[in-house]
Design a protein around this nucleic acid. Structure first.
Length: 110
DNA sequence: GAGGTGACTGCGA
DNA sequence: CTCGCAGCCACCT
């Protein structure tokens, strides 16, 4: 299976994000930590950038920063799109920030 | 081959 | 509480 190298890195991120149930969210640090690279949190965000080219849809709107702030909302094509997607799943967002984000925080990968 | 950038995080002042 | 700096790894020019 020596076909995917660094591409596998993105797939790992996509896999984790897709495993997030509807109405739940996670953080870049949690994903990076699960990947085994806590300091590579930036790579997680970069993987999301490639998510736009992903064959399957990646609920990147469920991924926010450590503060629960919609940092990547600007990359969804529209600044309010990410918030609309979250609200559409029952997640309340105020000031581009997720309410009770620590409660909705998904980290069941452990 | 080298430099710069980036959807982050943590710690110090 | 707010602001600034350094670390991290992959991609782009």
């Amino acid at each position: 299976m020596a076909q995917a190298d660094k591409t596998d890195f993105f797939e790992r991120v996509y896999a984790l994000v897709r495993q997030i149930p509807e109405g739940r969210i996670t953080t870049y640090g949690a994903i990076a930590r699960h990947l085994g690279s806590v300091g590579s949190s930036r790579m997680v965000g970069w993987a999301m950038n490639a998510a736009h080219s992903a064959a399957l849809p990646v609920p990147a709107h469920r991924v926010v920063n450590r503060n629960g702030l919609l940092t990547g909302k600007f990359h969804f094509g529209h600044a309010d799109l990410m918030q609309q997607l979250l609200e559409n799943e029952g997640i309340l967002v105020v000031n581009d920030k997720i309410v009770a984000f620590d409660v909705l925080f998904w980290e069941n990968w452990h």
